[in-house]
Nucleic acid binder design. Structure first.
Length: 484
DNA sequence: AGCACA
């Protein structure tokens, strides 16, 4: 009964009316296929956007000789077959008819997947997209995101008729020039249907909008219309403050566990969540405080310091773009201290192997993208072709972490410091930071945070500690951590 | 850069 006996393809192909085309550009349209193939004969069927990358297609000619003529032409031509400047490779298909030419993107629905070619995310605002598509009916929701294919938007209409009229009118067309920044050339729209029927928008932001729900909260780190990062007085990009710190750990001679980090960072306030991950071979961690001020204090105090004496495990701190991490409550790489009885979860976690893959690996279950700030992008993940995991850091494949590492998944976002509400100023105005009494570290070697090298603080919880060494997290900030 | 759909 198995169908897996035959090889996937053969190196010698018998001629077929059906040609297999690969290395096509993303979202290649049927029109483009026809333009390429019809000089050789009558095309009776096509199937576009095939394969994991949606860059393959099939074309069926009315007559075998027409297919043969196309293959032979390009076999001896000095000019390769091209679509949109990409060389297209043509072979006989190993089938002799196209049985079903409907691609998922061709099945009508009320949600359109729009790819805007040749632009970056900041070039076309969500308001422009809304304006363009509103011409065809009430736009319920828009979610924008960047994927390998480029800048994309999911646009939700009431029904598939409205969506179809928009698709028919706009597919392959360009957004009017006057709606775009001057530096842009043409930007064509490629439109297909999404399998979604209802987008899950969690915030009004510059990347997602729900026009049916004006009371939806505005994402404080993604307020609409602010695309350019705020500039500091020196003209350099000013780093947006955040209650979440990104810690890079340099010279990691000792294991830095979640417990170690918790100990270190708890000196400045309640640590809500921690996630450790690898990035470019370096260990990094996200540490979440309840507020900006605490994060700012911790950042000031710890920047450049080492967790252990001797220059080991040196911390470099910056603000994360996250405001609320979505982490496993208890794993070896993450902790959510806001969940009571996390330790109980630990036992269950430990016994269940292998760890469940993050939901985004499964397009079927990608309807809900749990807890990240960009709920709207949940829908985007359903667009990941079957079996393909998008451009995720391979280290994440361990499946331990469910938070989204911003840098790898949303490469081009620019959250503006200016968009942070008023309380941000509290963090920067602090002439009276609790730690300001510490002497500035002028020598090249900052003092360590934990004064006993090689003795992880988590091994000495609370109680008895060697003379002169404070158990981590117990002392108020600014005292013994920097004593000698 | 290498074959869809059930």
């Amino acid at each position: 009964m198995s169908t897996s006996g035959t090889p996937q393809f053969r190196y010698t192909q018998t001629p077929s009316k059906v040609l297999h085309l690969r290395n096509l550009p993303w979202e290649c349209t049927e029109e483009e296929l026809i333009e390429l193939c019809q000089p050789f004969g009558k095309i009776v069927n096509t199937k576009c956007n095939v394969g994991a990358n949606r860059n393959q297609a099939f074309v069926e000619f009315a007559d075998l000789n027409q297919a043969i003529s196309m293959v032979s032409y390009y076999a001896s031509s000095s000019e390769p077959a091209q679509v949109r400047g990409k060389t297209v490779y043509i072979q006989y298909s190993n089938r002799h008819e196209i049985v079903n030419n409907k691609s998922p993107g061709d099945v009508p629905g009320n949600v359109l997947l729009v790819t805007i070619e040749g632009v970056e995310a900041g070039d076309v605002s969500i308001d422009v997209i809304h304006l363009v598509f509103s011409a065809f009916g009430f736009v319920h929701k828009i979610a924008t995101f960047e994927k390998a294919a480029g800048f994309q938007a999911l646009i939700q209409f009431s029904d598939s008729d409205t969506a179809s009229s928009a698709r028919n009118a706009l597919d392959g067309r360009s957004i009017p020039r006057y709606l775009l920044p001057e530096h842009l050339g043409s930007c064509h729209l490629r439109i297909s249907y999404s399998a979604h029927t209802d987008l899950n928008i969690k915030f009004q932001s510059h990347r997602s909008r729900d026009y049916t729900n004006p009371y939806l909260p505005v994402n404080p780190t993604a307020i609409e219309g602010i695309v350019q990062p705020a500039l500091g007085p020196d003209g350099k990009k000013k780093e947006p403050e955040s209650n979440v710190l990104l810690a890079s750990i340099e010279n990691m001679q000792y294991a830095v566990t979640v417990d170690v980090l918790h100990t270190v960072f708890s000196a400045f306030g309640t640590v809500q969540k921690i996630a450790i991950f690898e990035k470019n071979g370096q260990t990094q961690a996200l540490v979440q405080y309840p507020d900006l001020t605490t994060a700012a204090v911790a950042r000031e105090a710890l920047e450049g310091h080492c967790i252990y004496d001797g220059g080991y495990c040196k911390l470099h701190l910056s603000y994360s773009r996250h405001t609320d991490l979505n982490v496993k409550a208890f794993s070896d790489k993450s902790r959510d201290y806001t969940i009571p009885d996390a330790s109980l979860l630990a036992a269950q976690q430990a016994s269940s192997l292998p760890p469940a893959p993050p939901v985004w690996q499964n397009p079927q279950s990608a309807q809900m993208y749990p807890g990240n700030d960009f709920g709207a992008t949940a829908a985007a993940h359903a667009q990941i072709p079957r079996g393909q995991v998008a451009s995720w850091d391979p280290n994440m494949q361990a499946g331990r972490l469910t938070f989204v590492p911003a840098a790898s998944s949303y490469p081009s976002q620019n959250f503006a410091a200016a968009s942070v509400p008023a309380y941000a100023t509290a963090a920067t105005s602090g002439g009276s930071l609790p730690l300001s009494q510490r002497s500035p570290i002028t020598s090249g070697v900052p003092s360590s945070v934990i004064t006993q090298p090689g003795v992880p603080p988590n091994l000495r919880p609370g109680g008895a500690s060697p003379p002169g060494v404070q158990p981590g997290g117990v002392s108020p900030p600014g005292q013994s951590y920097y004593g000698q």
